[in-house]
Structures are given as structure tokens and as C-alpha cells.
């Protein structure tokens, strides 16, 4: 049972990790904590749903366009809502992300709130039995999809020229601007990328759940828990935090009580912030407020 709980925890956790990674990238680049990140996940799911079920397009086409759309949504959010705030205090940025999260939720509820929306599974197929562990083909897809996306990010940031510039721009925006980097465009792009990771996560999760306007809230809390656990602002920490959270939830449910699964994420957040605010895996990074 332990092996199964752990492996299933990793499957779910890899999605938390992906969403947390998207938030972390945005946070590192812009020092904004996006309270509307769950809604990128939700919008991603709705974009795929509308294109796939509404327009009747095939999965590959719907997914490609939905990813493009979400990137655009992210860029637009930055351009229309975030950039005009200029050098407003931290509180204003946080409020703005709260405001647009409810705006997106309200809009999808207005148009789709009365329907029960669902996506067909990406992969059908019988469960595969590995002795003490059973997995669906879909589970492999989730791990592979999340893993591939995360790997791409790491390679990009660590090994490409652009990635290094991006890191430079997030660490010292003024210096980056001085050496000729277009910092606003870079911020726009990072918002786009953050929204895109939401869509990738939605693609991996939504076919096995429903698509509904409130689906982002839970994901946001899980992403926060993953980031807190791994150390706010650490890319590797976000991933480790997400995977650990998935496992913690399953172990709580399996060995303690099923009623605790729901609050595992909250307990993790509170415990970590009280006991070790720098996160279990992370070094202390003061926020640039």
C-alpha cells in the first residue's frame, strides 16, 4: 500500500509541481506573487474544452491553440493590468492579481457556469499491474508531461543564452536594462509562460475531472503549499515541494484519516511558515517588496 500511495502521490504531485513552477518563474522574474494563478489553470482547461468540445477540433489542434491562447492571456494580463500599475506598492499588485482571478472566474461562470463541462480522456486503456503498484496509461502521461515541461524549463534557464539573460533580468532588472535587455517585454513573456504552465497542468488534470469555474482555487493553494515547502522562489524547491505534497496527502489519507487529505496543504503551509519559513529544501530568500 505504501508504494502505491507514494507513486500515486507523485502522479498528482507532479501537477502541483508544474503549477508551482509556473508561479515561481513569475515570482523570480517579477517578484509578484500571483493570487490569480489558479485561474490560468482554470482558463487553460476551459480553452481546451471550448476548442475541443465546442468547436469539435481534434485534441492536438485544440491543445496547441489553447496553449497559444493562454500565453496570450498571460501577456495581456501583464500589459493591460500589471504594467500600468508601475511602481505601485506590493499590496496593489497582490490586489490586482486577486481582482483578475475573480474577473476570470466570474466571466467563465457567466458563460459556462450552468453547464457540466467535461473533456474526454487523453489516453484510454486498462490499468497496468506492476505487482504492488497499479498505474493507468494516463498516469504515465501526467508524469511524462509534467516532467518534460519541467525539464525544458531547467535546461532553458541553466544552459541557454536567453535563459541566462532571463535570470540576469530577474535578478537585476535595472542592470539588465542598462545592458540593453528589454525588461518590460521580458516581464510580458514571463507572464505568458506562467499562464502557459497553467494550461499544461490543466491539460494533464482536466480530462480526469470536470471543467468548472472554481477549479483553480484548490490548485492555487496546492501550488502555494508546494512553493512554501520547497522554499519560495526556488525552482528546484517548487518541484520537490509539489511532489512531496502529493505524497504527504496520500499518506495522510492512507494512514491517518481521509478527512485530513483536504487540509494537508493548509497544514503544510502553516507549519512550514511557523517553523522554517525558508522552506524545507530552500535557502532563505527575502522578498523584494
Amino acid at each position: 500500500m505504501l508504494a502505491q500511495l507514494a507513486i500515486s502521490g507523485i502522479v498528482v504531485g507532479s501537477v502541483y509541481a508544474l503549477v508551482a513552477l509556473g508561479m515561481t518563474i513569475l515570482f523570480r522574474a517579477t517578484s509578484i506573487v500571483n493570487f490569480g494563478h489558479g485561474e490560468f489553470f482554470m482558463l487553460g482547461a476551459f480553452a481546451i474544452y471550448v476548442l475541443k468540445q465546442g468547436f469539435g477540433w481534434s485534441y492536438p489542434v485544440a491543445i496547441a491553440i489553447a496553449f497559444g491562447l493562454l500565453f496570450l492571456v498571460g501577456v495581456l494580463v501583464e500589459r493591460v493590468l500589471i504594467r500600468p500599475l508601475g511602481s505601485a506598492p506590493f499590496l496593489s499588485f497582490a490586489m490586482m492579481t486577486v481582482a483578475f482571478s475573480f474577473l476570470f472566474k466570474g466571466l467563465t461562470r457567466f458563460f459556462y457556469g450552468r453547464d457540466v463541462s467535461m473533456l474526454p480522456p487523453l489516453l484510454n486503456g486498462e490499468p497496468l499491474d506492476f505487482g504492488s503498484v497499479v498505474l493507468f496509461p494516463q498516469d504515465f502521461l501526467v508524469i511524462a508531461g509534467a516532467g518534460a515541461t519541467m525539464t525544458i524549463f531547467f535546461l532553458f534557464f541553466e544552459y541557454t543564452q536567453v535563459g541566462k539573460i532571463v535570470q540576469a533580468a530577474s535578478q537585476a532588472p535595472r542592470g539588465a536594462a542598462l545592458v540593453g535587455i528589454n525588461v518590460p517585454a521580458f516581464h510580458s513573456a514571463m507572464w505568458g509562460v506562467a499562464a502557459l504552465t497553467g494550461a499544461v497542468a490543466a491539460l494533464l488534470i482536466a480530462p480526469s475531472t470536470l471543467v468548472y469555474p472554481d477549479m483553480g482555487g484548490q490548485m492555487l493553494v496546492h501550488a502555494f503549499a508546494a512553493m512554501t515547502l520547497g522554499g519560495f522562489g526556488s525552482l528546484g524547491g517548487a518541484v520537490l515541494g509539489g511532489l512531496s505534497l502529493g505524497i504527504i496527502e496520500n499518506l495522510m489519507g492512507g494512514y491517518v484519516s481521509s478527512s485530513l487529505v483536504e487540509i494537508s496543504a493548509y497544514l503544510v503551509i502553516m507549519l512550514v511558515l511557523l517553523v522554517r519559513p525558508q522552506g524545507v529544501f530552500g535557502e532563505w530568500r527575502t522578498s523584494r517588496v
Binding site: 502505491q4 498528482v12 488534470i205 480526469s208 475531472t209 482555487g217 496520500n250 489519507g253 492512507g254 481521509s258
Partner: peptide
């Protein structure tokens, strides 16, 4: 008797308890 919360995406721990 197991609880499975709304908005959850995985029922592994609950299902394994039921199976047991």
C-alpha cells in the same frame, strides 16, 4: 467510511482503504 473532498483529483488513499 471514507471522505473524499470536492475538487480532489485522485482517490487513491480512499480507494485503497475501501479495498482493504
Amino acid at each position: 467510511t471514507v471522505y473524499f473532498e470536492r475538487g480532489s483529483t485522485d482517490a487513491t488513499s480512499q480507494t485503497l482503504k475501501l479495498r482493504a
